[in-house]
Design a protein around this nucleic acid. Structure first.
Lengths: 198, 198, 198, 198
DNA sequence: CATGAATGAGCTTTCATTCAT
DNA sequence: GATGAATGAAAGCTCATTCAT
């Protein structure tokens, strides 16, 4: 019950990231996380309801930040095009900064049961809301077609970036990720075709 | 050993799909699958090496010719544009045909940790090779830009379609999936922008 | 029920000896014995009540012979001393003849549960009766002391020979076993002491 | 890990002895041992690596100084004859002290298949070394014949005593065991024959 | 007689969670 | 607050035995 207090809370979350990244989701026992965090097993339960709550909180904590940081960069004076470039760049940059976190969010946490994944999706909504705002803005000033399906567009944007990051993680983060932002941006906005149809 | 034959073999695989779809990957115990299949627990082991073998076989059996079916539709006389439309359409159609199977392959099986993931990647590889061929063809006849990054393009195409399907599954397959093919196709080839940049 | 008939009966027993010798008691499944015997699993149960019955019968069959063969050699005209030498020699010779059988009776069958071992002891009684007869005969003609405890003497004789054979089996039957008969005979009859006590 | 301490450790070992003695090796499930020890199944695994570790530890703990205890009694001032009497007496006395333990070591533990057998042999080796020393000493001072085969003599001594104890256990420990020491001693040293051969 | 596919009871071990100290 | 020893439910797999053919 006494949730979210004290330095131990963050200690435990950071330990969870580390343990999951190094040992994999299915080998991340509570006792291992407690040991890594330097606390007793029971202490975990003073800060988290149960194991799933650790993972949910982990994602909340790290991804809550995530969306806010992107929002902070997207100032009103930018063109919609530049706003999208920023979205992509900051998305990639943040995951590039912390390889452990990237492994956890892109690979390991997806092995969790479906309930947890629904909660993760809940958190992802903040991201999707942002994308939606950009799409609506783009439509209103004629940058995007009026009849664009926001949901599909969102799925294309998120699906593409997510797939790029996942591949990067699976290749053991060996190459420059954020450097791909411009290319991705160009592909997403302009599509694959060399010339417009008609 | 891998006796693989007899009606029980398929009975068990179908039961596995059903149980996993209804109860989730982590709640799909062997005994539950056996009960659903109408056989004794031990009978499972006359047809499969172990639990993982059930899942691997399930995936192979059901998704083994996923790519081949798409390839069969893509005849040489089609334009590159139409070939992509077919790719998307057939991809969506196949998953739309069996909701249970879609749940299993899009959500549940991704929670596995093992050889199964490798099997999934194997299938995926065949898919990506096909996409690569289409991209190369499109480049050679000027439909795509010469400097297009094949890997990124592949990730955009697969990432987008996969995300669309996953969202459809998570919305409990309540809307028409293959009907989205045209819109997706338009977005992927033409991008989000209403007018081409100069 | 229809026990002890047909050539299959012996086939199965011989297969059991072979399988147990090669794979060990705990790895000697009924199906493995059936395969070795060239019959179906179910066929086993036409000749034996259950698995334990195979083992009991195996021992009966092979050890029944065993005692009879020794008895046949011990003719009445021999001295009690020579009778004992024959007992020991034939005991060792018979086990030396069939290494598989020796492994099974000396090592593997002793891992069976206590019930089976009680039945084995039952069969061993034939051997012990023979020893008893010799001891009694030896006492009556003054070769042995009147106050010799037959039970203890039997245990010394059997315990010694059994231990010698077991060691030979554990050393993988690499040396001449029956050649030890004279030494054993000398030790058992004369003891370890170089000179008699007063 | 091998935490080995605390009162539970001994509780569990004693429970194992009791359960194995009463129900037999093959019926001594972990859950039965846990229940007898008055702990939860899982608690077993805080003190032992696995089931085999219970049995190995049991044997080590209970029989670890079996040989040492005998050695402590055999002081240098004794005659070789008396030393052997002590060996036999202490061997029997130790097993006589704890009937449950005797059942376990003489009958049940021999049904095991694994490292445990190796552990048992380890203990046995210490015993055989001791016997060897006595034999060598006896030879050097003329008490034993120079040409006595140590290995065979060892096997006679151990085989005889072991057989006597096993028979006593199988007769449910109903008679006085250590009281047999003098008779056994007499038989082993002097043999069965009433008068020395010429 | 013979088959062998099918059965299903039985057991070790893991690990999230609790609670007395 | 903090501890960590203790808990006990849960699940994959084996194999002796049966019985319809």
């Amino acid at each position: 019950m006494g949730k979210k207090k004290g330095p131990k809370y963050n200690q435990i979350i950071d330990a969870a990231v580390k343990v999951i990244a190094n040992h994999g989701y299915h080998q991340a026992q509570v006792s291992k996380i407690a040991k890594e965090a330097g606390v007793a097993d029971g202490t975990i339960y003073l800060y988290f309801e149960n194991k799933e709550d650790i993972l949910t909180s982990l994602f909340e904590e790290k991804m809550g930040n995530f969306v806010q940081i992107i929002r902070n960069q997207i100032t009103e004076d930018l063109s919609i095009e530049d706003k999208f470039l920023l979205l992509i760049t900051k998305h990639l940059e943040q995951l590039e900064q912390d390889h452990h976190l990237a492994i956890v969010t892109q690979l390991e946490l997806r092995q969790s049961n479906t309930d947890l994944r629904l909660k993760i999706n809940e958190i992802l909504k903040g991201y999707l809301v942002l994308v939606d705002e950009l799409l609506t803005e783009g439509k209103s000033n004629g940058f995007f077609l009026e009849d664009l399906d926001n949901r599909l567009a969102r799925q294309m944007i998120f699906g593409t970036i997510d797939e790029v990051v996942t591949n990067w993680v699976m290749k053991e983060c060996k190459y420059d990720l954020s450097g791909l932002a411009v290319s991705i941006h160009k592909m997403l906005l302009g599509g694959l075709r060399s010339k417009p149809s008609r």
